[in-house]
Amino acid sequence: MANYIFKETQRITQWWLWLLLFGVLTVVLWPLLSQESIDPSQLSSIGIGVVVVLLAMGILYTLRLQTRIGNGRLQYRYLPFIWRWRTYHWSDIQSIELKTFNSLKEYGGWGIRTNFEYWLYNVRGNQGLLVRTKDKSFKLGTQKPQEAARIIQEFDAFKFRNHGG
Rank of each mutant, 00 (worst) to 15 (best):
V52F: 14
A149V: 01
K159S: 06
R68T: 11
T13K: 13
G128L: 04
E106C: 02
S44Q: 14
I96D: 00
R84Q: 10
M1V: 02
F6R: 02
Q143V: 06
I82V: 15
R77G: 15
I82G: 03
K139W: 04
T133R: 07
K139R: 14
I69S: 02
F22R: 00
F155Q: 01
P31M: 03
Q153N: 08
I93C: 03
D135N: 06
K99R: 10
Y78M: 12
R84P: 00
E8W: 07
N71A: 07
N162Y: 09
I38G: 04
S103E: 06
S103N: 13
K136E: 14
D92W: 03
W18Q: 04
N3P: 02
S34T: 07
R113N: 08
L98V: 00
N3H: 13
Q66A: 05
I46L: 14
I59Q: 06
T9C: 14
R161A: 05
N122L: 03
T13V: 05
K7P: 04
I12M: 13
R132C: 08
K159F: 06
V28C: 08
A149D: 02
D92A: 11
R124M: 12
W110D: 09
Y121G: 11
I38F: 11
Q66R: 15
T67R: 05
L17T: 07
R73G: 07
Y61N: 00
N126D: 15
V131T: 02
M1R: 04
Y76T: 04
N3E: 14
K134M: 08
I82Y: 02
H163S: 15
R132G: 03
S103M: 13
Q153C: 06
